[in-house]
Design a protein around this nucleic acid. Sequence first.
DNA 1: CGAGAAAACGGAGTCCACCTCCGTTTGTGA
DNA 2: TCACAAACGGAGGTGGACTCCGTTTTCTCG
Lengths: 196, 196
Amino acid sequence: MKNRANPSASMPQPTRADARRNRERLLAVAQAAFAEHGPNASLEDIARRAGVGIGTLYRHFPTRQALLEAAYHDQMELLTAEAKTLLEEASPGDALDTWLQSLLVHKLLQRGLTEVLVEGEKSGEISPAKARMRAAGAALLARAQQAGAVRSDIDILDLMRLVHGVAVSSEMSPARAQLTSHYLKIMIDGLRTSPE
Amino acid sequence: MKNRANPSASMPQPTRADARRNRERLLAVAQAAFAEHGPNASLEDIARRAGVGIGTLYRHFPTRQALLEAAYHDQMELLTAEAKTLLEEASPGDALDTWLQSLLVHKLLQRGLTEVLVEGEKSGEISPAKARMRAAGAALLARAQQAGAVRSDIDILDLMRLVHGVAVSSEMSPARAQLTSHYLKIMIDGLRTSPE
DNA sequence: CGAGAAAACGGAGTCCACCTCCGTTTGTGA
DNA sequence: TCACAAACGGAGGTGGACTCCGTTTTCTCG
């Protein structure tokens, strides 16, 4: 039984110049494609637009999920950073709300981020960037819970799933943006209520 | 511009005996297939298992959506009936909660119902069964709102979308059932809080 | 600078699903 | 019984996912 593929999801730093170049182009095109067509954008199309063969795409990113994660790597780092900053904010509850809102803004702009963040739980294998973001979010959540601002019977995974649900709820309506913030408010109100 | 296909989504009562028979078999197989593989089950497979050609499937149900709606027709009628019954219940708030819970139970058992209920909003064309169910749910919601048990800034569509979100949230986890009811509770708490 | 090996490339080929079109079969009413 | 509309079914075109392997490119070392 040989170990699955490369170290972290999709080898990060190829050695050869052409490989690195192709990886960059693929990521750039993939970001645009996912933003435009959602997470099911055609991989053959992405390869074509990046000017590489389909085989090259699959060598760099063995699964769709790997490509998605790589494409949203920067977004996730941004959200990680924001969570860390928000840890300084005076009100733990407000800090968490703000972060959840940021999450949704990113999700709206980058359709497909949602899937990245929630998908692949059972399949083990969480990318480092995603793990970092989760850890940062967990800290924010824990602080809010200790302050009594948020019910204690949820963890960071629940939170991610719920945000995912909110994003999906409003996805098909033309007035997505308004609905999303409306639904997020409702969910946040639900989080505030203590379990008992 | 000729009118789109037949009267309501997918002609309900074919005249010829063989047609009616095939329609039944298709529906039975489709229900099983959607339950097992979700709303993206292979249509060719459904046709094969029903012992008819793929052309026959498409003649009866021009789109996947039409097949889904027909397959879940009975479920929707049940939910409609339940909503009407619950209108008699003493506590308007509890009645709504109970109904939402039923919705989710059906959704869990019949993966894909969710999509049926939410999908096809913009595309106009709502099947009569769905419309009836919505109307019944709307009555339940209105009563709860008038009793002050539920915030007033949502309508039945919001409610359906939120329930859809809850179903999706918990879908990928192995412990779906527990998560679902947990998330539903959170959402219901959020609904209770009045907007101001 | 010029091999030669290793790494990377690319696309043809396979598989599978969607959906349409039209020649063939079947049920029904006269 | 027969004629004809209704219904059937599957071949075929489209397009995406993913694999495999002969060819090309890059890097390294003498």
